[in-house]
Simulated assay, not measured.
Amino acid sequence: MTHGTLLYKGKLVLPSESKWTQQIMVECHSSAEGGHAGAFRTMKRIANGFFWRGMKKAVYDFVAGCLVCQKHKYQALKPAGLLQPLAIPDLIWEDISMDFISGLPKSRGFDVLFVIVDSSPSTATSSF
């Protein structure tokens, strides 16, 4: 307590259900100064002067729900090049891939599938 104000590491402490938490998020994110800079930068701006329980989750949820940010999202990656077809293997079992499918309901005590795929064209007529 300093001069009747509750501080935590020099930051003003607010109750998480306070009407001011919403207003602070709006000012630090949606104002001209905030500039819709994203959750991380908005969090840093707020954390400079304020603290409340669940502040990080509240800020990230607020920014995720911002309609302006959703409408003006852009792709920061350069466009991918043209797709190149893969070579078709000549022999069976020359090019295989394996994967596990998990999270299935239990059947006879098992809940995972082990899948093996042979990409050679002649395997369609093969039998095991």
Rank of each mutant, 00 (worst) to 15 (best):
V117H: 04
T123R: 10
S126F: 14
V68R: 13
N48F: 00
Q23C: 08
L77H: 10
F62I: 11
D90Q: 15
L104Y: 01
V59P: 01
P105L: 02
D61E: 15
C66E: 04
G4P: 09
R41V: 06
V59L: 04
D111H: 13
S107T: 07
E17V: 12
D61C: 11
C66P: 11
M1H: 12
K73F: 08
G103C: 02
H36F: 02
E33Y: 07
K44P: 00
P105W: 01
R53Y: 11
W52S: 06
L86C: 10
V68W: 14
G10T: 03
V26D: 07
G109V: 03
L104A: 11
F50P: 00
S120R: 05
K73N: 11
Y60V: 12
V117E: 06
Y74A: 14
S119Y: 15
F100M: 10
G4I: 04
M55F: 02
L14C: 04
I101Q: 03
K19L: 12
F110T: 10
N48I: 00
M55Q: 11
L82A: 12
E27C: 01
D95I: 14
A37G: 09
Q22T: 13
S30E: 15
L77V: 08
H72N: 15
P105F: 01
G4K: 05
P121G: 07
E33M: 05
L67T: 14
L67Q: 15
K57Q: 14
S30C: 13
I88K: 13
I46Q: 00
A32H: 02
Y60A: 13
F62G: 10
S31A: 04
Y8V: 14
C69Q: 06
D99W: 02
E17P: 00
K19W: 09
Q22L: 09
L82D: 07
M43W: 02
E94Y: 11
Y60K: 13
S31K: 03
D111G: 08
I101Y: 03
Q70H: 07
G65P: 04
S30A: 12
S127T: 13
G35A: 04
P105I: 02
S97W: 02
T5P: 01
L77Q: 13
C28A: 09
C69A: 12
L77R: 13
A58Q: 14
S120N: 14
L67W: 07
P79L: 05
L6S: 06
G81E: 09
L7W: 09
A76N: 12
S102W: 03
A58M: 07
K71D: 15
L83T: 02
P105T: 06
K19S: 11
M43D: 01
Y74D: 08
Y74E: 14
L86I: 11
D95V: 15
L83E: 03
V68Q: 12
S120T: 15
V68H: 14
I24W: 01
T125S: 13
G49Q: 01
D111I: 02
A32L: 03
R41D: 07
T125Q: 12
E33G: 10
P79E: 05
F110E: 10
G103V: 04
K78E: 14
L104Q: 05
